[in-house]
């Protein structure tokens, strides 16, 4: 009999695929995205839509221009779009969102070779570029939509910005910003679309950990080290909880610091990465001139990832250490 299919072993493959992993991440992001849309209204949904659509379009266009195989179907552009949108305030002008998508997909991701090849998390890099280039628009926060009961949303500070102002104006010590911990947990605060609702972010993060899409090592190390440092510095559990729930820490720890391409491979590496993120976030938030440091911390650790990978190689089962040649 001829026409047999011949291939090297194994002849079985997991039914997991890149697209399925991305789909799981999208599912995990949806509760917090939905919470953002409820709190910040249809404008937030529109921002998310603009980001997702422009990311997908940029991905498709860059592949066409570069004459590479089309990769839109792996859904990674949707994840990037969603993450970027969730990291923007609901008031952001649409053209800025489109610029952000261009930076994320074209410059950070595709110019470096597409999925798996980028050195930095596209959504984080784009957010940082936007934050530095369009500072006023990027920090135009509104109070949650239904909360203010007004059609024109009232401006509000984010928990961290409020705290930071408090700190810089009073100069001496932390003072609680005008949000309760319960408001912070459920997300009834000012902030980026997808970062405020801690409950839904934790839910999504747990979903990814349970389905083994991400390892718990990074978020635990990130949040843990940040919380520990904050507690040592402030000596107050309430303030520590406030700081953990505030800003982009949870979305960063669960969804951005766990990006495969830009974070270390081994568990040891992930722990180092997480601790590094926690440390840098703490330093920027406490001593820096920005109220928020999560994005910077992840970007900086992204840059260190190749080195962490080199230093945290596994030691294979039964491998013998190379005998060092004697010096002459």
């Amino acid at each position: 009999m001829k026409g047999l299919f011949v291939s090297p072993s194994p002849h079985r493959a997991t039914n997991m695929s890149t697209a399925k992993i991305m789909l799981m991440v999208i599912i995990a992001l949806l509760p917090s995205a939905a919470a953002g849309c409820i709190f910040f209204g249809p404008r937030a949904a529109a921002v998310l839509a603009v980001c997702v659509i422009s990311c997908v379009v940029f991905e498709a266009l860059s592949r066409i221009v570069m004459k590479r195989e089309q990769t839109v179907s792996d859904l990674s552009a949707i994840v990037t779009g969603l993450l970027l949108g969730m990291n923007l305030p609901a008031t952001i002008p649409f053209y800025i969102a489109v610029i952000g998508s261009f930076i994320a997909i074209v410059i950070v991701k595709q110019l470096f070779g597409g999925i798996g090849q980028n050195f930095a998390n596209p959504a984080i890099a784009a957010r940082i570029v936007l934050m530095l280039s369009f500072t006023p628009q990027m920090s135009n926060w509104v109070k949650p939509y239904w909360y203010s009961n007004a059609v024109d949303a009232e401006t509000s500070a984010t928990p961290l910005a409020a705290q930071w102002l408090n700190y810089t104006e009073n100069g001496s010590s932390f003072k609680m910003a005008p949000f309760t911990l319960s408001e912070m947990f459920w997300g009834e605060t000012g902030g980026c679309i997808g970062e405020t609702c801690a409950a839904m972010l934790i839910l999504g993060g747990l979903f990814l950990i349970i389905t083994k899409v991400i390892s718990a090592a990074t978020p635990v190390a990130f949040i843990g080290s940040f919380a520990l440092l904050t507690f040592i510095y402030t000596g107050s559990l309430t303030e520590t909880a406030y700081d953990v729930l505030a800003g982009g820490l949870l979305i960063g720890a669960f969804f951005m610091a766990t990006d495969y391409a830009t974070t270390p491979i081994t568990t040891k590496g992930k722990i180092i990465f997480g601790i590094g993120c926690g440390l840098i976030t703490f330093i920027i938030r406490t001593f820096g001139s920005f109220p928020e440091g999560v994005s910077f911390s992840i970007l900086l650790m992204n840059l260190l990832t190749p080195y962490i990978d080199r230093l945290t190689k596994t030691s294979p089962f039964g491998a013998k250490k190379p005998v060092k040649a004697e010096k002459n």
Binding site: S17, I21, D74, Y260, I265, S315, P316
Partner: peptide, 20 residues
């Protein structure tokens, strides 16, 4: 498709090699 550096190859290797 392209490697996404997920590390599953490393986590499943009985001898903890790093196929990636």
């Amino acid at each position: 498709t392209a490697c996404i550096r997920c590390g599953r190859c490393v986590r499943t290797c009985p001898f903890e090699l790093m196929p990636v």
